[in-house]
Simulated assay, not measured.
Amino acid sequence: MLSIGEFSKICKVSTKTLRYYDEIGLITPDAINAENGYRYYSIRQFKKLLFINRLKSYDFSLEEIKALLEWEEDQSEEKLYAALNRKHREIQENLNALQYTLNQMSNDISSIERGVPIMSYLDHIEVQLVETEPMNILYTRQTMSSDEYAIGYGKYFSRLYEKMATEKLTLTGTPMTIYHSPEYNPASISIEFAIPVEEIVTGTREIPGGLCAKSVLKGAYPELTSVYAKLREWVEHEEYELVRSPYEVYLTDPYQTAVPGDMVTEVYFPIKKK
């Protein structure tokens, strides 16, 4: 048996952390001296702590690790395999996002070196005046925080596609979101997730056609803020006004597009002359 200090030294985990792991039931000492409360760990527990350390290095939370430790009980690695694949995708997405940011910073540095204003990219965002046709959409409207949006995107669109399959509805366009909140509040955003379909059934409604200011973003979603600002500036400059909530149409699936710069999103501002 090893004292908590010896165990800590070999595995390079502080005794404070080991005590916390014990409190939350992650890894408990094999024995505790009833008289002095000293904790002792067995050699066989090295493997478990090394496994915990490995998962921590993969950015798993302690709650996730605790759940995954259960796979050892029934000798089934299916749960671990699925969790590792999910975390691998998350890390790859983060890497792609960081690479996109690095490329963007490199472009900004290059622009400054050439004497080009860093915000001059706004001049290259094109705005078109288009006439749209009415659309019948299958929709669900939700109120959520900005942090919940990424999860909601997949969750609510999946439900809409499931309903489409169940009711055998005909797809007529790509997924879209409509933003109904009058102002930005990260704690409460009113969003409508929608898919254009042909059939008129319960859960569908029509979006009127009409005049729209339109812009297309080829890049990561955080860049949409610049597109919205450019569209709003254009609408004001051309003496139009908004008549309905803006909406986005996703021409590419974020779950199928590995590189953020390859994503294509159309943004529409329904407008009329002042």
Rank of each mutant, 00 (worst) to 15 (best):
D262Y: 11
N107H: 08
D147F: 00
S181P: 08
D22V: 05
G115Y: 00
Y100R: 02
S106G: 05
K87L: 05
Y100A: 05
P208K: 11
K273C: 00
Y184P: 05
D262A: 08
E192M: 05
Y40I: 13
S3H: 02
S61T: 15
R54F: 07
D262Q: 09
R86V: 07
S106P: 00
A229E: 15
H88Y: 07
D30E: 15
A187G: 03
T204S: 13
S76W: 02
K230N: 07
E148I: 04
E238G: 03
E192V: 01
Y149W: 06
N36E: 12
R232H: 11
L98I: 14
N185I: 09
Y153D: 05
T265V: 08
R114G: 06
A187R: 06
Q99H: 11
A187L: 06
I109T: 10
S110M: 09
P254L: 06
K274M: 04
Y255R: 01
E72W: 01
Y81K: 15
E223P: 01
L98H: 02
G203P: 12
L169H: 03
E77A: 15
L217I: 06
E148Y: 13
C212E: 04
V235W: 08
L211V: 05
I112H: 04
E148T: 10
D262E: 14
F157V: 02
K214R: 14
P222Q: 12
N94D: 11
